[in-house]
């Protein structure tokens, strides 16, 4: 978008530009160096980790074999994927539907219902983990996928974003569909919803990232290795590995690189989506 705009050119770059590039490059270096260190350490042999050097002298892929065969990384991956996908699908649908109602319908009790949802934004998750845990215990949801996802199946933030988004959908369009005899769910799903897909994608992306990296609740609600999500599994594995930094870094690499790859491919959509959630709320 910026590349099409060509500024008045002088020979070379003006000084402020050079300074800007210099600082930005320095900053970029600070951003990626930890990741390079992570990958480099993940290829070191056990004897090399206590040596003060940056790159492995004799790189070995052994750490990855060990992490993949001796731990439950593949299982944790799957658990995270399932949990994040379920909650994202649910959020994408229900947040839209709820936002749509608050945006386009008039009904007795609307104000109260809206305040009820609004009020939940004030309460930090940390206050709810104790009650949730007691509830999960009583309903045998500890160590289940539903137990991991239930608190985040619908989000108030998403509802607000969608309520804003649906305001841009003209009422005439919906009324025209009504005259055509379409039922209200049909109008929502085939007329209104497709028009706000950028917002839906934004909340889905934000939610997926949030769930994928969620820590405190999955930590509390899972107790067995087999039901842990990736961050919990990684934390558990790392503290058990003691000081096998080569293994820990292999685990960290395994847990970050796939998502980072997806991110690089979808970076434009993801960054715009995140910016959108920031601007509207």
């Amino acid at each position: 978008m910026d590349l099409t705009y060509s500024p008045p050119r002088r020979r070379g770059l003006p000084t402020p530009q050079i300074v800007a590039y210099a600082i930005l490059t320095l900053g970029a270096l600070a951003m990626v160096t930890p990741f390079i260190w992570m990958v480099a350490t993940s290829f070191k042999s056990p004897g090399e980790i206590l040596q003060p050097r940056f790159l492995p002298e004799d790189p070995t892929g052994d750490n990855y074999t060990q992490v993949l065969t001796r731990t439950l990384f593949p299982q944790w991956y799957l658990n995270s994927l399932v949990a994040a996908a379920i909650s994202t699908a649910s959020v994408g649908f229900f947040d839209s539907l709820t936002g749509y109602v608050f945006s386009k319908f008039e009904f007795p009790g609307k104000r109260i219902a809206f305040i009820l949802v609004l009020a939940t934004l004030m309460v930090p998750t940390e206050m709810l983990v104790i009650p949730w845990y007691v509830m999960a215990q009583q309903t045998s949801l500890v160590d289940t996928t539903l137990g991991i996802v239930f608190p985040g199946l619908i989000t108030a933030t998403g509802v607000f974003l969608m309520r804003q988004a649906f305001k841009s959908v003209p009422d005439e369009l919906l009324d025209a569909a009504r005259i055509d005899g379409m039922n209200e769910f049909g109008i929502f799903s085939t007329v209104a919803w497709p028009l706000v897909m950028p917002s839906v994608a934004a909340i889905c992306i934000f939610n997926f990232l949030g769930n994928w990296n969620a820590y405190i609740w999955p930590l509390i609600v899972t107790s067995k290795r087999a039901t842990m999500t990736l961050p919990i599994g990684l934390a558990f594995f790392s503290s058990e590995a003691g000081s096998a930094w080569n293994l820990i870094m292999a685990g960290a690499t395994l847990s970050t690189v796939p998502l980072l790859t997806v991110f690089v491919f979808l970076q434009r959509q993801i960054i715009q989506g995140v910016a959108l959630t920031g601007m509207k709320s």
């Binding site: 930005l24 900053g27 951003m31 930890p34 990741f35 992570m38 870094m249 847990s255 970050t256 991110f263």
Partner: peptide, 24 residues
Amino acid sequence: TLYRVIYFIPFVTSAVAVAWVWRS
């Protein structure tokens, strides 16, 4: 765009992985 992507990488990484990398 390149810088934006680079600066955004840590944000899409889990805090757990970040913490262990920084610990080392």
